[in-house]
Simulated scan of single mutants.
Amino acid sequence: MKVDFSPPTTARAAVLHSAGDLRIQEVPLRHLGPDEVLVAIDAVGVCGSDMHYFATGRNGSNVLRQPTVLGHEASGTVVATGSSAAVPPGTRVAVEPAVGCGTCSTCRSGRYNLCPVGHCFGSPPTHGTLTTHLIAPSRAVHPLPDAVPLELGALVEPLAVAVWAVRRAEVAFGDRVLITGAGPIGILCCQVARAAGAVEVTVTDVNDARLEQARKLGATSTVNTAQEDLELAGVDRLLECSAHPAALRQGVHTLRPGARATVVGQASSSADGIPLALLQRFEIDLVCAFRYAHAFPTALALAADRTVDLAAVLTGRFPLEQAAEALRAPAADPAHLKVVVRPGDTPR
């Protein structure tokens, strides 16, 4: 007997009204467009940007001006599609939250991560993925390989950030790499850099628990910079993942002539003290990485064959009703790496 499926008209979501004011409420779902899909969300990773919005009402230069659903790292199952969407219902997917407008010259050049008019889920005022159901363009969902559990699909997005960062850093076989910051992105960058051929990867942080996890996941050495000096020289590639200007300044001084420094963590609006004369004298490239472009396929492949261990990065789970606790968890317990919200779960 055929059972008709009527897509829901509302979803339960975590809506940020102002700093610290996160409410679980019903939000309307519009009708699907021809090339859109409806995703039943299984898991949503908590990112530093979500934590900033929750704590202060802003993330970098972007400010919360109206109630907005947070979240941009997500996985789920397609449950309904528009008339021309090519992804069939029942497909398990990872969501790519920012895909650009697709028509401007920047997008057409392939660098859609830099689209000047694009939107990103969970970046106010665009509603995000901390919801039971999400409407997304079909090009924004990537089928998960069978080897990737649905929950871990939410971590494909930060893995794509790491893939793009390592590409921008131009890490190559035999390179010596320094990664400053052992948060989720830093530890994922460590694994991706090793996969790209780096023979030495040093990871720095001020948290011993995170440094221990970095060692377990591929770092050849670690340095707690709160307790000891960083005494490195001749480094080929620096990936700055901590978002602290002092770490960038310190890391640059470890680089060999002709090396490359890549800013991965969210940069401050300005950073005084960058040794520009040193960069010029030794032709050290200073580049930046912003989100990613065409990185999801590689991230999915690395996760599927366990070249990158996503499960080792996941340290906590919360139901949607405890989304505020999830947003506080990494700061409350620095041993946390990545926590996820499970919109389909019920509170314990």
Results as ranks from 00 to 15, higher is better:
residue 280 Q to N: 14
residue 5 F to W: 12
residue 221 S to Q: 14
residue 177 V to F: 09
residue 334 P to E: 02
residue 10 T to A: 12
residue 305 D to W: 14
residue 13 A to V: 08
residue 281 R to C: 04
residue 92 R to P: 05
residue 132 T to F: 03
residue 67 P to T: 11
residue 17 H to V: 06
residue 204 T to Y: 06
residue 64 L to D: 05
residue 152 L to W: 08
residue 74 A to H: 02
residue 267 A to K: 03
residue 34 P to L: 04
residue 322 Q to W: 13
residue 197 G to M: 03
residue 281 R to F: 11
residue 186 G to M: 03
residue 316 G to V: 06
residue 210 R to E: 00
residue 222 T to P: 09
residue 237 R to K: 15
residue 87 V to E: 00
residue 170 E to H: 13
residue 331 A to C: 00
residue 170 E to K: 14
residue 39 V to K: 09
residue 269 S to G: 04
residue 295 A to L: 03
residue 100 G to K: 12
residue 154 A to N: 07
residue 206 V to G: 01
residue 239 L to H: 06
residue 117 V to P: 00
residue 93 V to G: 07
residue 297 P to F: 07
residue 217 L to K: 08
residue 252 V to F: 12
residue 124 P to N: 09
residue 333 D to E: 14
residue 219 A to Y: 10
residue 270 S to V: 06
residue 121 F to Y: 14
residue 327 L to Q: 02
residue 242 S to Q: 04
residue 44 V to K: 03
residue 147 A to L: 05
residue 225 T to S: 15
residue 227 Q to H: 15
residue 136 A to K: 09
residue 177 V to P: 09
residue 22 L to C: 04
residue 282 F to E: 13
residue 296 F to Y: 15
residue 233 A to P: 00
residue 303 A to Q: 03
residue 135 I to G: 01
residue 2 K to I: 13
residue 251 G to K: 04
residue 146 D to F: 01
residue 233 A to M: 09
residue 269 S to T: 13
residue 260 R to A: 12
residue 85 A to V: 06
residue 69 V to I: 15
residue 276 L to T: 14
residue 139 R to T: 11
residue 154 A to W: 06
residue 145 P to F: 10
residue 196 A to V: 01
residue 91 T to R: 10
residue 216 K to A: 15
residue 24 I to H: 13
residue 157 E to P: 09
residue 126 T to G: 00
residue 131 T to D: 01
residue 64 L to Y: 07
residue 152 L to P: 13
residue 21 D to H: 14
residue 44 V to T: 10
residue 326 A to T: 08
residue 229 D to R: 15
residue 197 G to D: 03
residue 220 T to R: 05
residue 177 V to A: 07
residue 237 R to S: 10
residue 245 P to G: 03
residue 268 S to F: 01
residue 107 C to R: 03
residue 1 M to F: 07
residue 133 H to T: 09
residue 166 V to L: 05
residue 274 I to N: 09
residue 199 V to R: 15
residue 9 T to M: 09
residue 237 R to Q: 13
residue 48 G to N: 06
residue 49 S to H: 08
residue 205 D to G: 07
residue 327 L to H: 06
residue 235 V to G: 05
residue 68 T to G: 07
residue 31 H to C: 12
residue 62 N to V: 15
residue 291 R to K: 12
residue 48 G to F: 10
residue 219 A to R: 05
residue 312 A to K: 07
residue 170 E to I: 02
residue 43 A to W: 03
residue 179 I to G: 02
residue 34 P to V: 03
residue 168 R to F: 02
residue 321 E to A: 15
residue 234 G to S: 10
residue 302 L to S: 05
residue 131 T to I: 08
residue 164 W to F: 14
residue 13 A to F: 09
residue 9 T to Y: 02
residue 189 C to G: 01
residue 26 E to G: 07
residue 271 A to H: 07
residue 263 V to C: 06
residue 182 A to T: 01
residue 64 L to M: 08
residue 210 R to I: 06
residue 28 P to M: 10
residue 104 C to W: 04
residue 229 D to K: 14
residue 342 R to Y: 00
